[in-house]
Computed example of a mutant assay.
Amino acid sequence: MNNIFKFFTPQDKKFHPLFEQAGSNALKIAETLLEMVSTGDAESRKTIFKEIERLEHVGDDITHSIFLELSRNFITPFDREDIHALATAVDDVADYIYGTANRMQMYNMIAINEPIVKIAELLVEMCTDIDKAIKELRSFKNIRVIADACIRINSGENQADYVFTLAVARLFEYETNAIELIKQKEVLQTIEKATDKCEDVANVLETILVKNA
């Protein structure tokens, strides 16, 4: 009988801590990427990359745990499809941040251009807002925090789009080494995609807010 009651009890004690871990991990991996692109020392970058790789695996484990809890529990703190969408979107942010760092390592990039650093800074700001907004999902007592965070995330994505477009245009105008152009463009595309995924998180958060606030 206790197992039956447990089955129908909302699993706030399981889902919310997992989402908060995912949000915190996304922020950590964004901060670590910024550290990586801000250093000029190749050996330091290797060490920092290993930490990014570790954090990406941590994110995968958290996402797997959320999906596992979703399959085990009938009652959830908010709609099942929104739980799945939010977990996937946050995991995508970490994946593209890792993809950015991985390309930098594989391509043995020596010079990191300023637009990459700028987008990395925007990513930290956006992931900070993701972390704050996710923490507010426990109670929905301060919905303004979630709404304002989503607005800032959308604004950050627009800024990243502008930085990316201008950076690619300048690459084609001034970069004479075709191989270096390809390297820089691919890294720029991947890091900009990470900001798109942050916007996806904001979109899911707004959906949850509309349904539950």
Rank of each mutant, 00 (worst) to 15 (best):
A26H: 01
L166P: 02
I116W: 00
R72D: 10
I116A: 00
T195H: 07
M106V: 14
E199V: 04
P17M: 10
E51R: 14
M109T: 11
T39G: 04
I48A: 01
I112Y: 02
T32N: 06
I48P: 00
D200F: 06
A120Y: 12
D131P: 00
S24I: 05
I119R: 02
Y162D: 14
I66K: 05
M109K: 04
K46S: 11
K185M: 11
E51Q: 15
T9M: 12
N25H: 09
A213H: 07
A169H: 12
F8D: 13
E175R: 10
L70F: 03
N203V: 05
A30L: 01
I179A: 13
Q189Y: 09
V37M: 03
Q184L: 09
R138Q: 15
D61A: 10
L86Y: 09
S155G: 07
A26N: 02
F67W: 08
A167W: 01
E206K: 14
V37S: 02
R170D: 15
E31S: 11
Y107K: 08
K197I: 03
M1Y: 11
E186L: 11
Y174G: 08
A167T: 08
A89W: 00
A194C: 05
V117N: 04
S24D: 14
L122I: 13
L171V: 14
D41S: 07
E157C: 02
F172I: 02
A178F: 08
E81R: 08
A160G: 08
S139N: 15
T76K: 05
N108R: 13
D131R: 09
I191Y: 01
E56C: 08
R152F: 04
I208E: 07
L68Y: 10
K185Q: 13
